Simulated scan of single mutants.
Amino acid sequence: MATITMTVNGSEVSAEAEGRTLLSQYLREGLGMTGTHVGCDTSQCGACVVHVNGQAVKSCTMFAAEAAGAEVTTVEGMANADGSLGVIQQAFQDHHGLQCGFCTPGMVMSAAALLKDNPKPTEAEIRDYLEGNICRCTGYQNIVRAIMAASGQEVPGAIAAE
Rank of each mutant, 00 (worst) to 15 (best):
E125C: 05
A56V: 10
T3A: 15
G157F: 02
A17D: 09
T42E: 13
T7P: 03
V72H: 01
G35A: 08
T73V: 14
A124L: 04
G35M: 09
A81Y: 03
Y140E: 01
S84G: 10
N53C: 05
E71V: 09
Q55C: 04
L130G: 10
A150C: 02
D128I: 05
T7A: 12
A17N: 12
M62C: 06
G54E: 08
V108P: 00
V50G: 09
V108I: 15
V13Q: 15
A67I: 06
P156T: 06
Q25L: 01
L85W: 00
A2S: 14
E162C: 01
E66R: 15
Y129K: 11
E18N: 13
N118T: 12
A149Q: 03
I126E: 07
S84M: 04
Y26S: 09
T36G: 08
V50S: 04
R136P: 08
P156A: 14
S151R: 04
I143A: 03
E16G: 10
V155E: 02
T36L: 12
I4M: 14
I159L: 13
N133M: 05
C135T: 09
S14I: 12
T138W: 11
Q141P: 00
A124S: 11
C40F: 12
K116M: 01
Q93E: 04
G83L: 05
Q93V: 13
H96P: 00
G35Q: 06
G86Q: 02
E29D: 15
G101V: 08
N9C: 04
A124V: 08
I134C: 07
A91G: 05
N80W: 00
L115H: 00
S59E: 09
I134S: 08
N133K: 06
G30C: 11
A160I: 11
S59Y: 13
T61C: 15
G106N: 06
Y129L: 09
N142E: 07
E125M: 00
Q93C: 03
G132M: 06
T42M: 15
M107N: 00
L22W: 13
V50D: 03
A124R: 07
V155G: 04
P105A: 12
G86E: 06
D82N: 14
E18F: 04
Q93D: 12
R127K: 14
T34P: 02
N118S: 07
F63Q: 12
D128M: 09
V75F: 08
H95T: 01
V57F: 04
T42Q: 15
G139E: 11
S110I: 09
D117M: 04
A64V: 10
Q93S: 06
M33N: 04
